[in-house]
Design a protein around this nucleic acid. Structure first.
Lengths: 229, 229
DNA sequence: CAGTATCCTCGAGGATACTG
DNA sequence: CAGTATCCTCGAGGATACTG
């Protein structure tokens, strides 16, 4: 952001704005519906609060995002200029899907980030009404459990027992859930081979298939696999 | 390259590979036909030789490029994985064209880089046969002159007088030539208002219109302008 | 030409503690 | 919650000189 390339070239301009560490991931999270400072911070483990604030200022200066602080808490939103970046960011991600698909690395198996993504992509309109909990049991992961708390179409993640008997338990492991979310492994296949087990009333199990949402790149991953098969 | 984000996400992977300073510009230059170390170095004023070497190693490790040293001088070429990046890089550049079109900044008016781009995009097949020189006279620029030396369809740039009477002289200034190259200003319009003057035999002047090549983003710039008019 | 080796600087960004 | 202020570290990368 601060340091240009001294080149009057569109690629240089794009690199100037998006090339700094974390910036592309911040834009990605904004596209996925994160708007509050803490939301963004939670989705980017490793970034410091001051650096996040700095990057947000930079994006605001370049008119990619705007800060809204209408009375309540401040929020960050993509401007139309920022929304216009979507095709390019999708193209970049799809390139990565096509060319670097593989298992998540050791350091990429953070259940917290995965749960955040799962939460962000839940199809709220397909959620059963009322208040209930869904528990994820991860083999060989610390923390080994996480909860989704559903309350009238609103979903939140808990790392600790919310004290509510779960109506649905999903027993799996991090790489498997990652693969399903990313579209690299069909949910049906994972259920068949037992790498995911669903425990709960038939209605909740059926509903899960509808409200569980996938990565924006799942389509690209699926057609990759279909092509190579 | 070296530092990941610890996120199993396609955008994070793309940012990991392309997010480091200079990397996207190196890929751009490879796409535009630069393959030798010195060619790349010349197109990236400000990068040190050791850093360029380091970035090239990184891109090779990620299988975006490959180093070929078959007997002669080493060359760097995009792999098919690297070629596959073209749509994403074009999308990024077109986003920048749509949203940040403006005059080149003071530090972006380097005649050397501009001449390099002009050279790289010359349509060799439309060049007159034989050996001749084309001189560019830039108002208010140091160096104020540059030459294209054409020799049987091969073009090179000289910063100093090649000692050959030019058959064509192009009198203009850096921002104007930039704008024409970028597609933001029609050559015809620049000739009409005198911001570019062509001096030479009628045949050479006519040929210039055919062999002068434009930025890969010129099309996007033109349709931007057409839309806003 | 196409780099590598060595030394050194400086600024990006982490840690910590603080504020409205 | 949503940041800011201050201090400090360390590693990316520049400068320089060298090599096949």
């Amino acid at each position: 952001m601060t340091v240009g390339y001294g080149q009057y070239c569109p690629v240089a301009k794009a690199a100037e704005i998006l090339g700094e560490r974390w910036t592309m991931l911040i834009v990605r999270d904004l596209m996925e519906g994160a708007h509050r400072f803490s939301d963004l911070h939670r989705g980017l483990p490793g970034i410091s609060r001051s650096l996040l604030a700095d990057r947000l200022r930079g994006l605001e200066r370049e008119r990619v995002i705007e800060r809204r602080a209408l009375g309540g808490r401040p929020e960050y939103w993509l401007t139309s200029l920022g929304e216009d970046l979507k095709p390019a960011l999708l193209a970049l991600g799809e390139w990565a899907v096509r060319n670097y698909s593989g298992e998540p690395r050791r350091d990429e198996r953070d259940p917290r980030v995965l749960m955040l993504w799962v939460q962000r992509h839940v199809r709220s309109d397909a959620l059963p009404r009322g208040r209930f909990a869904v528990r994820f049991d991860f083999r060989a992961a610390r923390p080994g459990r996480a909860w989704l708390l559903v309350e009238d179409g609103e979903v939140s993640v808990c790392d600790d027992d919310p004290g509510l008997e779960p109506e649905l338990v999903i027993a799996t492991d991090i790489p498997t859930l990652h693969s399903v979310f990313a579209g690299r492994l069909a949910l049906a296949a994972a259920l068949r081979d037992g790498s995911i087990r669903l425990e709960g009333a038939a209605g909740q199990v059926r509903a899960f298939h509808r409200w569980f949402g996938y990565s924006p790149f799942a389509g690209a991953a699926r057609s990759m696999i279909a092509r190579s098969a």
